[in-house]
Design a protein around this nucleic acid. Structure first.
Lengths: 261, 261
DNA sequence: CCTTTTCGGTTCATTATTATCACCAGCGGT
DNA sequence: ACCGCTGGTGATAATAATGAACCGAAAAGG
């Protein structure tokens, strides 16, 4: 079903900064033929996944997405559950907190609470977080099935910033440390001047389903602050996992206590 | 791109009452082969549009939908704009108010505020409203492009309840009346014991983009109440259209005043 | 003012993809 | 041990998607 995946791939180019895209532009971005792109867009439009502005002929995300999101949220209200936890985490740490859930081969941001400080990290709503370059992704990978990790590491790791770790062996070391500590930290691996600290969210089977993270301007980060945030993030992750009906593995709670000491 | 449409069609079977579906069940509902369904589901899962519960192997709507909805809402915040208008409308009429937007060949519910009464109409979040059977759909059609209306009426009109109007000619008459009055009313055309009154939402070009409606238990409906609700719904529709950056056609405002008299 | 480029969109022969059937393994009930 | 269900898979037949060229319209450039 490569056709379906290609069509859905088009949706990935709509973001906060590019809410509306033209046919040629979208074809160029996706590296597909214009005719193919047009056919896929009409198919998406028939399903309401995108809609075309009659005046400008530009495409944007459609109302079906809102409809499906309402159903998902009505039946599995994760974002509503995460919001107060993120608010508490942002208040406690004084920094921007955000949560993300696994969506195929990456994490999808599903909640942000910005810090009250004037100098703070902004996180675009609906941002896609690569597993290898972000603290959230690393926290997720650190507790993921080894086969899945191997699959992720087998693919080329894009250098998003100069500091992104692109060497699989080096990343494995970081993941081992994250697994030992119960949290991951990544300095400017995804955005320059942003330091992320994240812990995994666990599902009912003890498998990671997402991550919860705090993003701090790199210049403000110190060893002391790092420890404080790590403890807060891990506690929030445990709270959030349980709120969503999940359960952290038995040994995860121990890690938290060890870290607190 | 029939493959894409078929794959997206699978998403339509997830609703409030069926948040998780199995492979065989989904194949049966969609009338597709199990192997085909499975491949489509894996394609959808790779894009994060659905996700599979590891324990039960059931599928449900995925986190990508939440991600895309956040982007759409961050860039075109319709549901946030509609919510207070629906609240005011529900308060004013004492009945359940809801709004929907066009999503392909039907309307997608994107907001509900329930009445405070103990006897009230429930509207499932994310409900798909057929154009021919609902007040919202009729209001939308009444102000739609004639070619689009012809296209909708050319297809078979499903009898959802015994009272659903399935005759194209009869529906055209209803639409003409709705166009004259500025609002549509449908008694038990979609759900038994539910009486709907709706007015269209207009986009920047004066074209309808959705509808706003009030749903009342049929037994409570009287001529007097009907008139009161119709006026409130039309006023709310004009307010909402403008809030979304749209503009009702010049003559629509006149209809509202005529109706008030 | 004329030319060139770009836009959205369409066409049709070529080519690659997808649908289908039969089948497998596992589970719960009888 | 069996039946009927489940999720899932593989090879062949049938169908669908692809892409270069093309169109008219609208900007951009001289």
């Amino acid at each position: 079903m490569q056709t379906v995946e290609k069509a859905l791939y088009l949706l990935d180019f709509f973001d906060d900064k590019h809410p509306e895209l033209g046919l040629s532009e979208l074809a160029r971005l996706a590296g597909m033929d214009k005719a193919t792109t047009h056919r896929m867009l009409t198919a998406l439009a028939r399903a309401g996944m995108v809609e075309q502005q009659p005046a400008t002929r530009l495409y944007r995300l459609g109302a079906t997405i809102l409809r499906l999101a309402r159903i998902r949220e009505a039946t599995f209200p994760v974002t509503a559950l995460l919001q107060p936890i993120l608010e508490a985490l942002a208040a406690e740490t004084g920094e921007t907190a955000h949560a993300s859930l696994q969506a195929g081969p990456s994490l999808a941001n599903v909640g942000v609470v910005e810090s009250a400080r004037s100098s703070r990290v902004f996180v675009e709503p609906g941002l896609k977080l690569p597993l290898h370059a972000t603290a959230s992704g690393n926290a997720f990978l650190a507790f993921s099935d080894p086969a899945f990790v191997a699959h992720v590491l087998a693919q080329p790791l894009a250098a998003i910033t100069p500091d992104t770790i692109t060497d699989p062996a080096a990343l494995r070391e970081r993941l081992a440390i994250a697994r030992r500590d119960g949290f991951a930290h990544v300095d400017q691996g995804f955005e320059v001047e942003v330091y992320g600290i994240a812990a995994p969210l666990f599902g009912p089977g003890g498998d990671p389903v997402g991550a919860i993270a705090v993003a701090t301007p790199t210049h403000r980060m110190t060893g002391e602050l790092s420890g404080k945030i790590a403890r807060a993030v891990m506690a929030a992750a445990v709270t959030a996992s349980r709120a969503m009906g999940g359960e952290p593995p038995q040994d995860y709670q121990m890690r938290l206590e060890r870290n607190a000491a």
